[in-house]
Design a protein around this nucleic acid. Structure first.
Length: 851
RNA sequence: GGGCGGAUAGCUCAGAUGGUUAGAGCGCCGGUCUCACAUACCGGAGGUCACAGGUUCAAUUCCUGUUUCGCCCACCA
């Protein structure tokens, strides 16, 4: 065996073996299933550390339950990411001098499909590269034919049930992506802007009404002015007519409760086609809806002489013109939230257009109920509130997108009888008149309209397949918080509505990976770390271990490059411990049971048993960093630092060490699959590690951990006193533990680095003593040159003890404490007092003996 | 404007339901190339647990407020 663990070749080797043996393939059988569907990464993504964390967590769950005997199934896949993909490919083509519209739809889609295929594979390879044990034969893509069938089926169902409707409303429009967006796809950004006060002349008067607006360019589409009827100061204007400047259009002043009398001037310009509030007001007062922009956000012919300008240009020109006409009252600095497209960050335009919507209130109700009655569990629990709040205030979902890349809306229009009909499969004729002359709706569906079916569409739904029957519902969804609304809430609604069951009961929300300074990693900031670079530089196991170790439940982990040294060093430690064991083992076969030759064998198997339990508990509670810490502490600090060091001295046979190592590897496998697979093979195991079942270890009947604590304490104290005095001739006065300790005299001597060690009957030796939990250690005075130098340390310790004792005395003499504190706490306090008093006496003895 | 999360050693973080002389890793100081590992071993220093109140016999832990960093939601132009 090499001196260092060669993770790169282990990764290459095991990835190949696992792939060829289809190690993670699952078919329904008579075991209990444990199923997770992957949150499908967008095909536009390359794996980043967030994915690494997300998928490592899922892999831990999958591998652990596989090791517990479940039929584990992890379905991988990717998302076609409608807008994102179309935008990326369009940009790429433009660089190559091509244009989507010139190419035509078919050529463009062919181009996208090619690009997407290469990306899909790359993502799946990257997942494999971090050790994800997915069932690769079941991989899905949200635009696969069977997925499309589920999508169309769902559309038809909702259409027939009256949940889906079409209408002309104000929607969020991205002028760069040329499509409508849902409310969730708009990000709100606080931005410094201006509040413009503009004077609108009253008809047949030389008076003005001043309105305040952040978007003066929309005045081109104004068709009214509103004032609150309660507004005593301004309500006298209601019913009058105003001349809209620049357009010279006559518009009425109307009364509407919506207007806040406190804000601005109390007068609001109403632009029904470019603001959702104004749209509502316009409906109430029957105002004209004037669309003044085209789909690119360019002013159209309704904008008069401003036609052809961008929104920004028009704003500037309009303000210039108004100033010239002396119609600008004032301009104030103003901060407000601006909506931006979540894909391209372009400022979204509220835009009047015909779109398809899903009514959400009734779908949300059951999803809210399952949260209220505890059928679903959030980890951490605080996300429940966020989820509830969103569902309680849910608004209808705009699902149509003016894109080419996506699921076509399965609505058809007959050109003969004008019948509108929905069909899951491509129809042959109009069901109304039988005509073959019909056309399909040009729009595609929101990407999330396919993702929300993912937990069951991936299993063949709407067909009652074996997979669907066996694997559905899944166990848990593991996700970042960003897609709680987009995806998780909608999956729950879809699951309940279409399958009548929850798609999962547990929702684990992990944190967002940040850099060393706590800044979110992103491409544009260039502070991202490529996980595949890490798997080469430190190893996939190191990547997995480190990122899980530092990610407390739901917390944002801060990651720097050298964070991964933690995992690399740990992997190396495990490797070398195994190397040591194997170099010294006569028989390398894994024993079915440990051999209990002495107390240490019982102690270490007891510790292994405790670890087995804590791993179980931590994984069940989704406490992954605790799992990582327990594994680390056990292996490094119990097994290596003490057990292996002790058996080195004992020259003992290795059965128990091998037994512990082999069982430890099973517990490690979910977290560090490569090194555990590799060592398991080196140990000559018949089964691969991922095939083994975790069982409770065989243990001895004497696991008195306190004895080991005393033993360790003695060794440490001797080391300490040697380190401080340089003298290695030690006498030990031990109390009741003497027999036990004396029994291991040689081991204590060697572990501590003492030259001689004798157990004495009384603490009468004159010299420098030290203390340990079971007694005292002495160095003879004759060995010490300047004994007084050592007294300070003991005085300090004595002071500290006295301080603690004073506190204890105060507590223990308090009536209230004795009356109100639980008996076991009082008992513990008393014990502590005894312990400290005893220790204080020892220290006083030490001080006196030095003097 | 609402809501949520964080503030613990120089750095990154643990401290699940209040009672531990407050822990780890890295870094630092000192000592070891000891025949598994220098990606290691041994010893050590380092913290008024952001601040101010309160509840309690007892508060890093619970409550309120403040400061500060970060998220999310919100149709006040």
């Amino acid at each position: 065996m090499d001196k260092h663990f060669d993770y790169v070749s282990a990764q290459t080797k095991w990835n190949k073996v696992w792939r060829e043996k289809k190690s993670f393939h699952s078919e329904p059988d008579n075991r209990d299933p444990y199923t997770i569907v992957i949150p499908p990464p967008n095909v536009t993504d390359i794996l980043h550390l967030g994915h690494a964390l997300n998928n490592t967590i899922q892999d831990i769950l999958i591998r652990y339950h596989r090791n517990k005997g479940f039929n584990a199934e992890w379905i991988p896949g990717t998302d076609h990411a409608g807008i994102a993909t179309q935008v990326v490919v369009e940009k790429k083509l433009r660089k190559e001098g091509m244009d989507r519209k010139e190419m035509g739809k078919e050529a463009f889609l062919t181009e996208i499909r090619q690009w997407v295929d290469s990306r899909k594979n790359r993502i799946l390879q990257q997942l494999e590269g971090i050790g994800a044990s997915c069932d690769w034969d079941k991989k899905k893509f949200t635009l696969d034919n069977d997925m499309s069938k589920a999508v169309a089926t769902v559309f038809k169902l909702l259409y027939e049930e009256g949940y889906i409707y079409r209408g002309t409303y104000i929607v969020n429009w991205c002028p760069a992506c040329h499509t409508a967006l849902s409310d969730e796809e708009v990000e709100h950004d606080e931005q410094k802007g201006k509040l413009y006060y503009i004077k609108y002349p009253l008809k047949d008067s030389d008076e003005y009404i001043t309105v305040a607006t952040t978007r003066p360019e929309t005045m081109l589409g104004d068709s009214g002015i509103a004032v609150n009827p309660q507004d005593e100061k301004n309500r006298n204007m209601i019913g009058k007519t105003v001349i809209l400047p620049l357009m010279n259009r006559e518009i009425p002043v109307v009364a509407d409760d919506f207007v806040n009398t406190e804000f601005g001037t109390g007068f609001v310009k109403v632009t029904p086609a470019h603001d959702s509030n104004d749209f509502d007001m316009g409906k109430r007062h029957d105002l004209e809806e004037i669309v003044i922009m085209d789909t690119n956000g360019i002013i159209n012919s309704n904008g008069g002489k401003y036609k052809g300008m961008t929104r920004e240009e028009a704003r500037e020109r309009i303000m210039d013109d108004l100033k010239e006409m002396d119609l600008v009252d004032k301009i104030e600095d103003y901060e407000n939230a601006v909506g931006k497209c979540y894909r391209c960050k372009t400022i979204v335009e509220p835009y009047l257009s015909e779109q398809w919507f899903v009514k959400m209130k009734d779908l949300a109700k059951p999803a809210l109920d399952v949260s209220g009655n505890g059928d679903i569990n959030f980890y951490p629990g605080r996300w429940k509130g966020v989820y509830d709040h969103w569902l309680e205030n849910i608004r209808d979902w705009c699902i149509s997108r003016q894109l080419w890349w996506g699921h076509r809306i399965p609505v058809y229009y007959c050109n003969e009888c004008y019948e509108e009909f929905v069909s899951v499969n491509e129809p042959r004729e109009c069901p109304q008149c039988g005509s073959e002359d019909f056309r399909q709706d040009e729009n595609v569906l929101d990407t999330w309209f396919s993702s929300w079916l993912w937990p069951f569409s991936t299993m063949g739904w709407p067909e009652e397949t074996d997979d669907y029957r066996y694997y559905y519902p899944t166990e848990v969804i593991v996700s970042a918080s960003e897609i709680l609304f987009f995806w998780i809430a909608r999956m729950i609604m879809a699951g309940l509505h279409f399958t009548g069951r929850l798609p999962f009961e547990d929702i684990y929300i992990h944190g967002t990976v940040r850099d060393k300074n706590g800044i979110k990693m992103s491409k544009s900031l260039g502070n991202g770390i490529d996980p595949l670079e890490i798997t080469e530089e430190y190893g996939a196991d190191a990547l997995r271990f480190s990122i899980v170790y530092i990610s407390g439940q739901g917390k944002d982990p801060n990651v720097a490059r050298n964070t991964f040294e933690l995992g690399r060093n740990f992997a190396n430690k495990i490797w070398n411990a195994a190397r040591f064991i194997l170099l010294n083992a006569e028989e390398t076969e894994i024993p079915g049971e440990p051999v209990f030759k002495d107390y240490f064998d019982k102690w270490i198997t007891g510790r292994l048993a405790a670890l087995t339990d804590s791993v179980e508990n931590n994984i069940a509670a989704y406490r992954f960093s605790d799992y990582a810490k327990d594994v680390y502490d056990f292996f490094w600090h119990d097994f290596c630092d003490w057990y292996l060091e002790i058996i080195k001295i004992q020259n003992k046979s290795m059965e128990t060490a091998i037994y512990v190592l082999a069982n430890f590897l099973k517990l490690l496998n979910p977290l560090m699959p490569y090194i555990s697979e590799e060592l398991n093979e080196i140990l000559g195991s018949e089964l691969m590690i991922h095939q083994k079942i975790i069982t409770s270890p065989v243990r001895g009947n004497d696991e008195n951990f306190e004895n080991m604590d005393m033993f360790r304490d003695l060794v440490s104290s001797i080391r300490n006193i040697i380190s401080e005095t340089g003298i290695k001739r030690i006498s030990v006065y031990a109390g009741s533990g003497r027999d036990l300790l004396e029994n291991y005299r040689r081991i204590i001597t060697e572990l501590s680095g003492a030259e001689s060690l004798e157990f004495i009957d009384s603490k009468q030796v004159k010299g420098i003593p030290g203390i340990f939990s079971g007694g005292m250690i002495f160095i003879a005075a004759s060995d010490i040159d300047n004994i007084e130098d050592h007294i300070g340390k003991y005085e300090e310790e004595k002071d500290e003890l006295e301080k603690q004792l004073k506190k204890l005395e105060k507590t223990l003499s308090s009536r209230d404490f004795l009356n109100k504190a639980p008996p076991d706490v009082i008992e513990r306090m008393k014990e502590k007092q005894d312990r400290f008093t005893e220790k204080k006496h020892r220290i006083e003895y030490i001080i006196n003996s030095i003097r």
